[in-house]
Nucleic acid binder design. Structure first.
Length: 277
DNA sequence: TATATTGTTACACC
DNA sequence: TGGTGTAACAATAT
């Protein structure tokens, strides 16, 4: 699942490849994944690539912007010009739904197995409105996200369960199922614990976990357990470092007890009952 | 062949 | 209003 570290990896890699190039052609086969008048972007120059929460923002010349959301299974794959045909065949497949051809003959592929992802075309003013409408919480790796700020945020939500709260994009932006499980394991806090039952040490460890784990995952280029891939098509390596996510029934690396799952709001949380109280 | 899974969102309901 | 609960989305594994 692309969460903050995966989206950040894609943004960083894409920036190096596509900024300064022009969009020569766009082809797509699933209209529901493309929102807005895509033809308007033909000929536009790519000015920058950035991120807010899990959204990728590609700023174009002429006051236009492309926004991508990869949801669970979306991929953005960059194919340099003149790539050999076997590689191209692997990466352009039945899940390739949008292809952007760039001025130098390279291509950007938008692949999505479950087709929940989208790309939207926005003018700059509408872009601001659209992002404000989402009411995103602070970026966890920004300067404004201090321990004091986090404590103040938690104080507003005494009755919330900690795991769904960490995944709430209007509370903090960018954390999903994988990293909320890993952060709570790091902090030794049970995913169903209510905010008002956290002590000061719990809060400090959760805060520390958010920063440490997201940073480590960015360094590892993300977690490729399922379909997430870097723009090169390669896997991120954080899956090798994870402690609990998708390790149900396997021994906890700390206490050797078995990792368990519990349903929270219809979703699966992974935790070690021995370590997380 | 039917069902569970998966993150996000839309929507009903209080 | 906000918070909660649930269905829907699509393809896959089992």
């Amino acid at each position: 699942m692309p969460e903050l570290p995966e989206v950040q990896t894609i943004v960083s890699e894409l920036k190096n490849e596509i900024v300064g190039k022009k969009i020569a052609e766009v082809n797509y086969n699933l209209p529901k994944m493309v929102v807005g008048d895509i033809k308007k972007i033909i000929g536009a120059k790519i000015a920058s690539v950035s991120r807010r929460a899990k959204i990728i923002i590609v700023k174009l010349g002429g006051g236009l912007n492309l926004l991508f959301h990869l949801k669970m299974t979306g991929q953005l794959i960059y194919l340099p010009a003149g790539k050999d045909k076997t590689k191209v065949g692997e990466r352009i497949n039945k899940y390739t739904h949008v292809i952007f051809k760039l001025s130098d003959g390279s291509r950007l592929l938008f692949n999505d197995l479950r087709q929940f992802g989208w790309v939207k075309i926005f003018g700059t003013e509408d872009l601001k409105k659209a992002i404000n409408k989402e009411k995103y919480g602070p970026e966890p790796l920004s300067k404004e996200f201090t321990l004091a700020k986090f404590q103040q945020m938690l104080a507003q939500k005494p009755n919330a369960k900690i795991k769904p709260l960490l995944m709430d994009q209007s509370f903090i932006a960018g954390i999903g199922n994988i990293y909320s499980d890993e952060i709570l394991y790091f902090a030794k806090v049970h995913p169903l614990k209510k905010v008002k039952d956290l002590n000061q040490k719990d809060i400090e460890k959760i805060y520390e976990g958010i920063l440490k784990i997201l940073r480590a995952a960015i360094l590892a280029k993300g977690t490729s357990i399922d379909t997430y891939r870097r723009t090169t098509g390669e896997k991120g390596t954080y899956a090798l470092k994870r402690q609990v996510y998708q390790r149900k029934g396997l021994p906890c690396y700390h206490c050797q007890g078995k990792v368990q799952t519990v349903k929270i709001g219809g979703r699966t949380a992974h935790f070690c009952p021995g370590c997380q109280k």
